[in-house]
């Protein structure tokens, strides 16, 4: 959801000061200092910063990944290419660039469920999922996904059969992962557009399952 972006009107949280004048929080001051110093040196272009923010706030998000998944469900040749070289196949839909230089796509099957984490920080396949949700960046998820993936899945409302093997993929800056969930039953003959509506962000991280037919908006 976009929010007010007029950073000339921000002010600090302290309201016990003179209300007539502005006050910037410590972090806001640090960010402005960085921007000023780097712009003076010609190392950053303030207009480019606005474009980057707009890109991630409005243009790049999990709908991109949903289209990739729906294509894979509909086109077995595309799916084969996707599993072979994720980033390359994803580029066929014109998605790519920063944070998506190398993407491995891991397929959920009857035997195996895949889940993605970044234990180090928050590496995430930006071009197909946008920026990660807060919980993905949190220490509890980063540690528990590895120690107790079944418990994490239960927290997200997902219970898998005992015999299903869970594979946890630890992302790095060099390799990021996208889960290809299983196509829901009862969707024979559906168009890619309709299928894409069943694909949730969480199902592509592996902490959720796609919606069932009839459950989508």
């Amino acid at each position: 959801m976009p929010h007010d972006h007029d950073h000339d009107h921000e002010h600090g949280h302290g309201h016990d000061h003179d209300h007539e004048f502005s006050e910037l929080s410590d972090v806001a001051l640090r960010v402005r200092a960085l921007e000023t110093v780097l712009a003076e040196k010609g190392l950053i272009d303030p207009a480019a910063l606005d474009v980057i923010v707009d890109t991630y706030e409005t243009r790049v998000g999990p709908r991109n990944g949903a289209r990739v998944v729906a294509r894979a469900w509909s086109d077995s040749a595309f799916k084969a290419r996707l599993l072979e070289d994720g980033a390359k196949a994803i580029a066929e839909l014109d998605y790519g660039g920063r944070g998506g230089e190398h993407i491995a796509v891991v397929e959920n099957t009857a035997d195996t469920h895949n889940m993605v984490v970044c234990t180090l920080c928050s590496c995430y396949p930006w071009p197909v999922l946008g920026l990660p949700p807060v919980w993905y960046k949190s220490a509890p998820y980063r540690s528990r996904a590895v120690i107790d993936p079944r418990g994490v899945l239960a927290d997200f409302g997902v219970t898998l059969p005992e015999e299903t093997q869970i594979r946890v993929w630890d992302s790095t800056s060099e390799m990021r992962y996208l889960v290809l969930p299983a196509r829901p039953e009862g969707t024979d003959g559906w168009s890619e557009e309709r299928l894409a509506e069943l694909v949730t962000r969480d199902s592509m991280i592996g902490v959720g399952l796609p919606l069932k037919p009839g459950a989508s908006a």
Partner: peptide, 10 residues
């Protein structure tokens, strides 16, 4: 907050 967006973009 706006500073988060600016820091991200930088």
């Amino acid at each position: 907050e706006p500073w988060e967006a600016q820091a991200f973009a930088m």
